[in-house]
Design a binder for these strands. Structure first.
Length: 425
RNA sequence: GCUGGAAUCGUCUAGUGGCAAUGACAAGAGACUGUAAAUCUCUCGGCUUCGGCCUUCGUAGGUUCGAGUCCUACUUCCAGCA
């Protein structure tokens, strides 16, 4: 993998670049579509191409049982649609994306998460919303209620769907990810919640660093197993404390095994919105300029703008598509809830270049589809609304890239946010 | 015309003496950020100083401390018989 920087912002952090992987190029800043279970829910490969998605992020935790099967095909990009169709019928059987999958699956660059997020979502944050606004007043889930428990070795957890006990540590995560064969992997980390103390964040961060070293060691054993080079990013934790963030960034930046270090860095953690920019600045001032950085799990426009400004190259997040499914539609003039649009003959967004708006779908029509109660109609709505919201965020990253190349990023950011926050709709 | 059965908050529905009254849907408001998420929370008779107050279960009476619930009559609907 190569990372080429084309231009750097005057602040010395934000940049425009290209990540060249075995499966294609990612022009950064870029937003990656999330396909947790190996495919993007309700969107086909053709849809993703139409949206100009450049890469997909899947999750090693969710794919842990399929990983050996994926390896047999030669990695994520070579898995045939039939495989995912069969998989999607399993589980709760509700993920009726089968017809969408049949239309083709993603074959471009891919990223996998390590399962580190599940440490928190099944552990201290079980049953809670991982919200930037709300979590400040939320306490951690009681220890005995958690589905995941952290030890030095790794994480013991119970599968929330079938109740089976399981275990993932750094070695397991790397083995899984190297079987899945994404171009970029994440080291196995412990994501803390905003409710955790400074002292606990030190403990978790230091453990995450030890896990990073073990991740690197295991990754190096398997990174060429599928016949092309797979890459590993080290994930940074450290909560909202400057000393921790800078320290862990320095530690991970210089971490090597036999002269080989990480290929890039994952910026992790639970953030309060107002802290995000500062925290990213602390991290990125310490990290080597020439390595790419992925900001994990954020996608609201203001977060992407601040992330790109502070030096994040790629982003991923479930929000655009989950919120689309829940009726929240993104537009340049703010978001709106489709529920109140029963009589609207307007498109989701005027002058939008997404396929849904181009096809002439109206808000009222989409709302009727969404609320019809018929699975097929709803699935169609999920496809159309997901395409719109995803295109909105992808377009935002494209425009950020263009503005950085032109040299007017600050102005672009100011104008975008002024209009977006005015919320005319 | 006779005999049964039924009428409850937009719709369907629970309720057979302590009820402003169950559940579902619809409707309305909010949430959602490395997917336990086609999910979750709240509202859904009116007023309220949030302690309550008022008006409600087809209509009108009655029994009762108390009636959606029991009784009588009426109205409407359904089924069967003429």
């Amino acid at each position: 993998m190569e990372f080429e920087i084309e231009k750097v912002l005057p602040n010395g952090l934000g940049r425009v670049g290209e990540i060249k992987t075995a499966h294609g190029v990612i022009k950064t800043p870029a937003f990656l579509a999330v396909g947790t279970r190996g495919y993007v829910r309700f969107l086909s490969a053709a849809d993703l191409a139409e949206i100009d998605v450049q890469a997909m992020l899947c999750n090693g935790y969710h794919l842990r049982r399929q990983a050996p099967g994926i390896a047999k095909f030669g990695g994520l990009a070579k898995v045939p649609a039939e495989f995912w169709q069969a998989e999607s019928i399993n589980g709760k059987g509700e993920d009726a994306s089968a017809s969408v999958i049949a239309a083709g699956i993603w074959q471009g660059p891919t990223v996998t998460d390590s399962g580190g997020f599940q440490v928190m979502s099944l552990g201290s944050g079980l049953g809670k919303v991982v919200s930037m606004e709300k979590e400040r007043h939320v306490t951690n889930t009681a220890h005995k209620e958690r589905l995941a428990h952290v030890t030095e070795k790794g994480v013991e957890f119970v599968d929330p769907f079938d109740g089976r006990p399981d275990f993932i540590g750094p070695e397991e995560s790397m083995q899984i990810q190297c079987q899945i064969g994404a171009d970029i992997h994440m080291s196995f980390d412990e994501l803390t919640s905003l409710a955790d103390s400074y002292e606990y964040n030190i403990e978790a961060m230091e453990r995450t660093e030890r896990w990073a070293k073990r991740s690197l060691a295991e990754h190096l054993k398997h990174r060429d197993d599928l016949g092309y080079r797979q890459n590993l990013y080290a994930v940074l934790q450290g909560g909202r404390w400057e000393d921790l963030r800078r320290q862990t960034a320095r530690n991970l930046a210089k971490m090597q095994i036999e002269g080989i270090g990480f290929d890039g860095f994952g910026l992790g953690g639970a953030f309060l919105k107002e802290d995000l920019g500062e925290i990213l600045r602390w991290c990125d001032e310490e990290l080597p300029m020439e390595k790419p950085r992925h900001l994990l799990g954020l996608s609201h426009p203001d977060d992407i703008l601040i992330g790109a400004e502070m030096g994040a190259d790629t982003f991923d997040c479930v929000a655009p598509m989950r919120e689309a499914r829940h009726g929240k539609i993104y537009t340049r003039d703010g978001n709106f809830n489709l529920r109140k649009m029963a009589d609207s003959g307007e498109p989701l967004e005027k002058n939008c270049d997404c396929s849904t708006c181009a096809a002439g779908w109206t808000r009222g029509g989409l709302r009727a589809m969404w609320r019809s109660g018929e699975a097929e109609q709803k699935a169609k709505y999920y496809n159309l609304a997901s395409a719109h919201n995803l295109r909105f965020i992808v377009r935002l990253t494209e425009e950020i890239r263009q503005s950085m190349l032109r040299g007017d990023f600050d102005e672009y950011k100011k104008d975008f946010l002024a209009r977006y926050n005015a919320g005319v709709i």
